[in-house]
């Protein structure tokens, strides 16, 4: 679906289903250099199991218009406005990597209708980006794509869980097809984000921290430390996968998401 906001036109993947007011809406927010289809092994399922879904393209990404944003708070502000236009009975926010920061910040400032749950996948805070990667993102984006693809995957060649798709190839292609400047804007936003502690302290809805045990981009121990301090948190580690767990362990991610979101469904 297309969503108009402040003269720009944004895209949300809804699996072809128009949102209904009597359903909970699951909102998916992608990570740096990615886009809505990074969720294709999870988002569609919810659309066929009683939920509205919106897997967004952030401003300036893939099918969304608007300018690239290089600030998590600005992305979160945009997200809250978009969610208000999608509608639904209640909301579940799901973010991956940079998208987890955006979802977290949006959740901290959430205004009614009610936020039922928050899921932070491949989350760490701070999400500092090594200078080498940041420089590559600015000066030599293909080198940055290659580094991120390699560091994000724990799995070896072969034995892909999704028939016919090679997760590193998909991730690299997604970044290669991203708008000029997108990877640098996104990584800069991750690197500069300083509101995480405050935002986490303000979250009172059930929160799932879901990590790849072998994540090298956003080490699982960072998420664990935050989860331990959070009153209403679930901490789940998936084995044998890294930062690209959405495609490295699609079934495990979907299983945990459905378990958690079903439990926190409104009414």
């Amino acid at each position: 679906m297309r969503i108009k906001l402040n003269d720009a036109d944004y895209y949300a993947y809804t699996a072809g289903h128009a949102p209904r007011r009597d359903r909970d809406t699951v909102v998916f927010v992608h990570g740096a250099g990615m886009e809505h289809s990074v969720w294709s092994h999870q988002s569609r399922y919810f659309a066929y199991h009683g939920y509205n879904i919106a897997a967004l393209d952030l401003p300036g990404h893939r099918l969304s218009g608007g300018e690239l944003l290089d600030d998590i708070a600005a992305m979160a502000g945009w997200l809250r406005e978009i969610i208000a236009r999608i509608g639904g009975r209640a909301f579940h926010l799901v973010g991956h990597s940079m998208g987890a920061l955006v979802a977290l910040q949006a959740a901290a400032d959430f205004a009614p209708p009610p936020l039922q749950s928050l899921t932070l996948i491949g989350f760490s805070y701070p999400m500092s980006v090594t200078p080498r990667l940041l420089e590559a993102a600015r000066d030599d984006p293909p080198a940055a794509y290659a580094m991120m693809t390699q560091w994000s995957h724990a799995s070896k060649v072969g034995g892909e869980p999704v028939p016919g798709f090679w997760s590193p190839g998909m991730q690299f292609s997604m970044m290669r097809n991203s708008a000029p400047g997108a990877i640098f804007a996104d990584l800069s936003a991750c690197n500069a984000y300083a509101g995480g502690e405050q935002a986490l302290a303000r979250i009172d809805c059930p929160t799932l921290f879901l990590c790849g045990r072998l994540d090298r981009m956003a080490p699982a121990k960072s998420a664990k430390a935050h989860a331990d301090r959070h009153a209403n948190a679930d901490m789940v580690f998936l084995p044998d996968c890294g930062h690209s767990l959405l495609s490295e362990a699609p079934h495990g991610v979907l299983r945990e998401l459905t378990r958690f979101i079903e439990r926190n469904r409104s009414a």
Partner: peptide
């Protein structure tokens, strides 16, 4: 464009990178 033979799926939105393979499969 949406394909009636598979729940109205629009392949290049469903899989931005592998639309061809997705429809082929």
């Amino acid at each position: 464009a949406p394909y009636c033979g598979f729940h109205g799926m629009t392949f290049d939105e469903e899989s931005s990178q592998g639309a061809f393979l997705l429809r082929a499969r």
